[in-house]
Write a protein that binds this DNA or RNA. Structure first.
Length: 404
DNA sequence: AAGCATCGCAACCGCGCGTCA
DNA sequence: TTGACGCGCGGTTGCGATGCT
């Protein structure tokens, strides 16, 4: 059966809104608030369809809208969020205060697409337009812009900022279960240069489903889900600028570099993190506050833990969480931040933790028994890399540990 | 100055999803 | 369980502004 029209088209105005219509709409919403768009036009004395009123309000008349040009930071944020979320303009807009989905969508189509093309990047896939196959995926030399397979690190960035943001709760499905936090974890490494042709970002997905590794529909990076909906995350906030976006039950810790390549971390619903002072006695501790922490490990028996290390020369931070019932992959990585061996050592010497881990570097996560792009092969123990192998670039590492 | 092309953005349209009776 | 309804999202269109010849 066909849907009834949202309004009687023959009795509605179309096209540009007049100032009088705008004022009528503003006055009505000031008095009665948003909502009931279908009945609003008649009540407000407008010869417009409800959808048109809603659009006009949301995209143009809302008082909290930020008008004016997009900043370079907003540009990079949009690019990174798009690489993460695809054409989910409303989700992207929820992370840019004062910007609307329509505005971002238009801006994407008119400016950013062109910008990415000029960088040689496909705006849909966020991959280089020209693909030059590479055979040596472990080289430490930065790859050409057109390479997609090299794991070479990007140069360090010099400016890092962090913002605490919230996942969008605009849609009705977010109300079903605030405790059931469902997010997505994606890994990416930093850009190779100022052209920023790779993303450095992560979302962590926690839900009531068993932890698993999935391919992300928008990209080939790995999606990780966990059944743990509680927790926290920390990051190094030193020398960072912060901003707070709209809030909901889903809180993200979100950081990005704004120069030479955006570094975006999103961690949600993570397990309380505890630094360890002993490598032999590990107990679950109360949730810590988000604060500066380095070389920290979480432990708990019968659960699977991971910690993520976001590394660049100026900022090092560990993120962490718990994955229950997960099938983790033992994996060593030849490229590892210097802080990691200490953490790994603490893990491996712990009496309650078996030596199982996984590296999710190189932009892609790993399926079971699948080698990392950096050619690291699964192993049953954490391996401390030689100092020479330690990276000096902006990078994200994620390691999983399995407790017994 | 006129005509044409291109750009940028506001607005429209159709569809999908969630809710409710 | 099903269908109507309301809302919101993403893609597309229309048109004024601007630039070029």
């Amino acid at each position: 059966m066909g849907r009834s029209p949202c309004c009687e088209k023959e009795h509605t105005n179309k096209g540009a809104w007049t100032k009088e219509e705008d004022q009528r709409l503003i006055n009505y919403i000031k008095l009665h608030g948003e909502g009931c768009w279908r009945s609003l036009p008649k009540a407000a004395g407008l010869l417009r369809c409800g959808k048109s009123c809603r659009l006009r309000w949301i995209n143009y008349l809302r008082p909290d809208l930020k008008r004016g040009n997009f900043t370079e930071e907003e540009d990079e944020l949009i690019i990174n969020l798009h690489s993460l979320l695809g054409n989910k303009w409303s989700l992207i807009a929820s992370r840019l205060p004062g910007r609307t989905d329509n505005e971002i969508k238009n801006y994407w189509n008119t400016h950013i697409k062109r910008k990415l093309y000029s960088r040689g990047i496909d705006p849909q896939t966020h991959r280089p337009l020209l693909l030059i196959p590479t055979t040596d995926t472990t080289t430490s030399t930065p790859p050409p812009k057109t390479s997609t397979t090299s794991t070479s690190p990007p140069p360090p960035t010099t400016i890092t900022s962090t913002a605490t943001v919230a996942a969008s709760s605009s849609s009705s499905n977010s109300s079903s279960d605030d405790q059931n936090i469902k997010l997505t974890m994606l890994m990416g490494k930093g850009s190779n240069n100022s052209s920023n042709n790779n993303m450095n970002m992560m979302m962590i997905n926690t839900s009531n489903a068993n932890a698993k590794l999935n391919n992300h529909p928008h990209d080939d990076r790995v999606l990780i889900e966990s059944n743990n909906s509680t927790g926290s995350a920390t990051s190094d906030h030193s020398n960072m600028s912060s901003s707070t976006l709209t809030s909901s039950s889903e809180q993200l810790v979100f950081s990005h570099t704004v120069q030479g390549g955006l570094n975006l971390d999103l961690s949600i619903g993570l397990l309380p993190f505890r630094p360890t002072t002993s490598t032999t006695s590990i107990k679950l501790q109360p949730e810590p506050q988000i604060q500066q922490q380095k070389q920290q490990i979480i432990h708990k028996q019968h659960d699977h833990y991971y910690f993520t290390y976001d590394h660049d020369d100026n900022n090092r931070k560990l993120l962490y969480g718990r994955i229950k019932n997960s099938t983790n992959i033992a994996q060593s990585c030849t490229e590892r931040p210097s802080v990691l061996p200490a953490a790994a050592a603490a893990l491996s010497t712990s009496t309650s933790i078996t030596s199982s881990s996984v590296c999710l570097c190189c932009r892609l996560g790993l399926q079971k028994n699948q080698p990392c792009r950096c050619n690291s092969m699964p192993t049953s123990t954490l391996v401390t890399p030689p100092a020479a192998a330690l990276p000096t670039h902006n990078y994200i590492y994620t390691y999983y540990t399995t407790t017994t």
